[in-house]
């Protein structure tokens, strides 16, 4: 009979074991998500679509600032889905350990595994929705083929990894000072506005750019649109800045997680 193996002889075995645990937890997360409802995981995808529709309706009402060369729905999707991926990855990681504390009864399962599993399930959900709505919106609006598909994929994945880094970096603060979570909801609202979901940077006067370009998610929105539309070239989007922020936050987050792991209870 096959049996459980827990002795990891080296770094690679240990890494493989972590990947296995994260995969198992991510599958469980997706299977269990909304499993008390009739259509189960379908609701998770429906939730994303409803949020996106609300965003589009909101945009129609506020006559937001998309340049005329870009179809409005595609414009919103290319800014909105990376933002939602980032936001739900970071936000989900902050909440998931206390919500799924019971999983810590299991040997090999660490808070980091639970957080990474949550991030993985967010990526699976949002990337599926992203592909479907992009194809749909492109078909109906005639947005053409993307100019640089590999760039789109890389920048989208960076928004996800940025969410992981942000979540890991904030997690120790939330553990030590839980009321900070309230403050975070305000930051999210400002973040949605400042990340260029509703506007492109060219719609704003250039003397404001310097106050906005510190935000890596604004670069993500700008780059996503630049890599899709041949008619748009971002004046500020810098993939290396996004890469540097992603790497820096991820390293900082992993170090902080390591530091608080045994010092502050999850």
């Amino acid at each position: 009979m096959e049996s459980v193996s827990t002795t990891n002889s080296g770094v690679f075995d240990s890494f493989a074991a972590h990947l296995r645990v994260v995969k198992a937890l991510a599958v469980r997360e997706m299977q269990a998500s909304n499993s008390n409802y009739v259509y189960g995981y379908g609701w998770a995808i429906a939730e994303v679509c409803i949020s996106l529709t609300a965003l589009i309706v909101l945009k129609v009402f506020i006559h937001a600032l998309s340049p005329p060369a870009m179809p409005p729905v595609l414009f919103l999707i290319l800014g909105g889905i990376p933002w939602f991926t980032f936001h739900n990855t970071a936000g989900g990681m902050l909440m998931v350990v206390s919500a799924k504390r019971k999983l810590l009864q299991l040997p090999h399962v660490t808070p980091l595994d639970i957080m990474l599993a949550k991030a993985t399930s967010v990526l699976c959900t949002y990337s599926s929705v992203f592909i479907v709505v992009l194809i749909g919106a492109d078909y109906f609006e005639g947005g053409g083929v993307p100019r640089y598909t590999a760039g789109l994929v890389i920048i989208y994945l960076m928004s996800w990894i940025l969410g992981i880094g942000f979540g890991l970096t904030l997690m120790p603060l939330i553990r030590v000072f839980p009321p900070a979570l309230k403050l975070l909801s305000v930051i999210w609202r400002f973040g949605l506005i400042l990340s260029g979901v509703y506007f492109s940077i060219t719609s704003l006067p250039s003397n404001y750019w310097v106050y906005l370009t510190w935000n890596p998610m604004l670069h993500v929105s700008e780059l996503m649109r630049t890599y899709w539309f041949s008619s748009y070239q971002t004046p500020i989007g810098n993939p290396f800045y996004v890469g540097a922020c992603t790497t820096g936050l991820l390293i900082l987050g992993l170090l902080l997680e390591r530091y608080v792991r045994h010092r502050v209870p999850a």
Binding site: S3, V21, R28, Q31, L106, H108
Partner: peptide
């Protein structure tokens, strides 16, 4: 997970422990 099937729960632990 109460709202998952018994088999799904077993498979989760099998996956978790590499069985």
């Amino acid at each position: 997970v109460a709202f998952s099937s018994v088999a799904t729960n077993i498979r989760f632990l099998m996956r978790l422990y590499g069985v």
